[in-house]
Structures are given as C-alpha cells and as structure tokens.
Design a protein around this nucleic acid. Structure first.
Length: 294
DNA sequence: CTCCAGGCAGTGT
DNA sequence: ACACTGCATGGA
C-alpha cells in the first residue's frame, strides 16, 4: 500500500474505509489509550505507537517505513479487501446490514498470539476496563518499559517465562483473581511447545480449537477469540453474553438460544466470514445495549 | 445491599 | 448431553 514519510511520521490516505476509534474500541484488543478525539496510543509488538485519524488521513507518529510495512500494515489488516467482505455480509440479511453499517470502519487486528491468549483468559467473567487494568498491571510488574508519554510509562506485554516466574501470588497481586492458575497453565503449555502457532498453523480450525481448549481456563469463547484475533481464523464465531443477546433478538425471536444453535446458524449463514460478522454484531449490540436489561 | 461482567471448571442428573 | 454453582474483583 502507498504511504508518505513526513518528518518521522508515516501518513496514509484513508481510502480503505478505516475507522481508528471503532477498530480499537470494538472490544478485540485491550492495549490502547485515548489521547484525544481520534488520537490513540497503541501498544503492540513491543512498540508504543501514537496514531491519529484526521480528515482523510491516518498518521503514524515516530514510525519507520520498515515498522510500518512489517508491523502496522499486518496488525491493522490494511491490505485485506473489506469492501468485498462487507458487501457479502450486507447481502445476507437486513439485521447484519444494519450492524455492518453501524461501524463499517472496523478492521480485525492481527494480534500477537501469546498476549491474545492471556488477555482473553483474563477477559472471562470480567469487564473491559478491568481487563485493560489487569493487563497493564502484569506488564508493569513483569516486563520492561517501552516509553513514556505525558508522564506515564508504558510497558511491553510480559513473556510466558516472566509470567510463570511471577507465580500464583505474583499474578494475584496484579488482580488476575481466580484466573491466575489458568495463566500459569497457559504459560507452561506455551513454554513446553505443546501450544504454539507453528503447531496450530498446521491444523484445521476445529483441531486448533480443541488444542487451545486443553489449557485450563480456555473454553469455546476464549479459544474462538484467540483463533480470530491472533491466528486469522475467520470462520469462528466467538459467542459471549452480548453476541448471544443480539443473536437471540435478531434471529431467534428474543428467546433464549443455546450456544451450539448460534454456532450452527453462524456456520450455515456466515460461513468463512463468521468472524467478521461476529465483530460487527458484537460492537453494534454492546454499544447500543441490544437485549440488555433496562 | 445485590447483581453483573467479551466464561469456565467442577459437579450433579 | 444438559443444568447448576462458585469464582476474584470492581463498578453500578
């Protein structure tokens, strides 16, 4: 893709339908901060990125062309044809059309596997602001600083070795709660090589999901999130309380629906684009509180 | 105070 | 196969 170098910044034309705010705030990642309207701090791949969306342009501050091409283009999924994906989904039904058009600028980020795995283990029975806080706690306690902005220091995500060394006590001090033992189990399986992106890349999605679920604290929802947000498996349909609610409201007459029925519906109707559909539906449902009490 | 959150493991039928 | 319950923590 085309980009310009201006001072130490990279600037691109936003002719790719990208919305920075919706992409970061749609619940797929936890390592960002709002600096001002349309301006964010992103932590990923052991880097601190200031990024701003202006009228028709995206600016990546203090970024080299090498980092932009090798890290940020893949991370933000800039080279995928989202118009084609969105057009296909909008043609499925009017409900999905509404959800896609609610936030058409969402891209599915390509996050790092280990960080994504631990983050979504932490996400269970938790709320997004608290998930972000716990991840920040772990990073500050068990990793190294990447830089300082406005007097605040930001830290890389810890390695599996560092989190294992932290022990249950260390993890509990970071407010991981009952998930501490799950994190430890994930670290052990990752360090041993039992769980790795190399192994998973050779497996079909169902087998990959089964392997991930061998980790304590990783069930259908967490494994689907990891598969979708860090392994490029777009045929999964992570189903949490919000997705369950919105699916019930839109496709099952407001009645309670079993997870398996939702998965069957998504596989049949959304197929290889289920993951994209899920993210549009999730953001739409959560933001508008579709199906929530009150 | 109670209830719930991008769920899951454990236990029981 | 399915239903029920406890779980660390913080916020409404």
């Amino acid at each position: 893709m085309d980009f310009e170098v201006k001072n130490n910044n990279i600037v691109i034309k936003n002719n790719i339908g990208f919305n920075l705010k919706d992409t970061l705030e749609c619940g797929q990642c936890f390592r960002f901060e709002v600096l001002s309207d349309y301006e964010y701090l992103v932590i990923a791949h052991e880097r601190l990125l200031k990024v701003k969306e202006t009228d028709g342009e995206i600016i990546f501050f203090d970024t080299t062309p090498e980092d932009f091409e090798n890290i940020w283009i893949p991370y933000f999924d800039f080279e995928r044809d989202y118009d084609s994906i969105k057009n296909t989904l909008k043609g499925k039904d009017d409900f999905l059309k509404t959800a896609v058009e609610y936030a058409p600028g969402i891209k599915i980020l390509n996050q790092e596997f280990f960080e994504c795995l631990i983050s979504f283990i932490i996400s269970q029975n938790n709320q997004i602001p608290n998930i972000k806080r716990v991840i920040a706690n772990l990073s500050e306690a068990y990793s190294y600083p990447l830089g300082t902005l406005n007097g605040k220091t930001y830290y890389a995500f810890p390695t599996a070795e560092a989190l294992l060394d932290a022990g249950i006590d260390g993890l509990m001090k970071c407010k991981t709660g009952f998930r501490a033992k799950y994190i430890t189990d994930a670290c052990e399986k990752y360090i041993s090589g039992e769980i790795s992106t190399e192994r998973i890349s050779k497996m079909d999605t169902a087998s990959a999901k089964e392997l991930l679920m061998s980790i304590k604290g990783v069930g259908p929802k967490v494994s689907d999130c990891v598969l979708l947000f860090s392994l490029g498996r777009y045929d999964v349909f992570p189903t949490d309380v919000w997705v369950r609610r919105v699916m019930s409201e839109l496709y099952f007459g407001g009645k309670p629906v079993k997870i398996n029925d939702i998965h069957s519906f998504a596989e049949k109707n959304f197929g290889s684009l289920a993951g994209f559909a899920q993210q549009y539906l999730f953001y739409y449902a959560r933001t508008l509180k579709i199906g929530a009490k009150k």
